[in-house]
């Protein structure tokens, strides 16, 4: 029973959410269909938006910004994390910045980012980056600081340079930690970009959402929320897949 439940859990959850949504919309118990359209109506609207090219375009814009933000965050976060994990000086220098970055709501930066970078993609990518980089840096730093000393020493004894040790020994050993930070960071990047697009933009899924709301085309609003959630899911699933391939050597990385 419970094993069956464990396997079907995710499917059941999707069905439960769709069922509750459909029941609330169909009976009109919560709100009228204009404000809360049924899942079927949203699916039809999504199909129409897909055919006329709106949805692929907005999705592509959001995806591009998200990937840019995530790639930058991955590079910067991993570099900062490795430095913090392996050098006491780097740790002391970067800790206040990472601490501040972790604790503050990055979204409050957004108006300032728009002032600096304008209304184009720059500010959204920057917000996605800011949401993603700190979890990656913190998780990488924690993992890198726990790399067994004998591993590093034996590599040094074999003649590897400091840089080679960082790249060939510390990075792979810290990879499980880095990747769990990356999972948090990836969802952060999606949400950061999307919220940025909602607050001030002329394209992207976030814009689709706000435009649907302002122009009272509510089904667009729901199409946008569903699309960005699916995007988050799909990217997370891809990352999990990549992680499984990258961590084939690690015995306990199933979760």
């Amino acid at each position: 029973m419970s094993r069956l439940l464990a396997r079907c859990g995710p499917l059941l959850a999707v069905l439960a959410v769709l069922g509750a949504w459909w029941a609330a919309a169909a009976t009109g118990a919560l709100a009228d269909p204009f404000v809360l359209p049924a899942p079927g109506a949203v699916a039809r609207a999504a199909a129409a938006l897909w055919r006329d090219g709106t949805l692929p375009h907005e999705l592509g814009v959001t995806l591009g910004r998200t990937l840019a933000a995530f790639a930058l965050a991955l590079a910067a976060g991993a570099a900062m994390g490795l430095a913090m994990g392996r050098s006491a000086t780097a740790r002391a220098a970067l800790r206040p910045l990472v601490g501040l970055g972790f604790a503050t709501p990055k979204i409050a930066l957004f108006p300032a980012l728009v002032i600096l970078l304008g209304l184009g993609s720059g500010a959204k990518v920057a917000l996605g980056f800011a949401e993603a980089v700190f979890p990656i840096a913190a998780a990488t730093a924690a993992a890198a600081s726990q790399v067994p000393v004998p591993l590093v020493w034996s590599a040094r004894a074999a003649g590897a340079s400091r840089a080679a040790v960082a790249l060939r020994v510390v990075l792979p050993a810290a990879l499980p930690g880095l990747l769990s930070g990356a999972r948090i960071g990836l969802v952060g990047a999606v949400i950061g970009v999307y919220i940025g697009e909602m607050v001030a933009s002329s394209d992207g899924l976030g814009h689709l959402m706000v435009a649907g709301w302002r122009q009272l085309e509510t089904d667009r609003l729901y199409v946008s929320v569903a699309a960005v959630s699916l995007l988050g899911f799909a990217l997370d699933a891809l990352l999990l897949l990549a992680r499984r391939r990258l961590l084939r050597w690690a015995p306990e990385q199933a979760a």
């Binding site: 995710p10 999707v14 999606v190 959402m209 729901y222 929320v225």
Partner: peptide, 24 residues
């Protein structure tokens, strides 16, 4: 087992954005 998948489903949804449908 019942609740965890629901939470996992909600995880990548930008919760702030739900403020709009909620207020509608």
């Amino acid at each position: 087992r019942l609740v965890e998948p629901l939470l996992a489903l909600l995880y990548p949804v930008p919760k702030v954005a739900l403020v709009v449908p909620l207020l509608l």
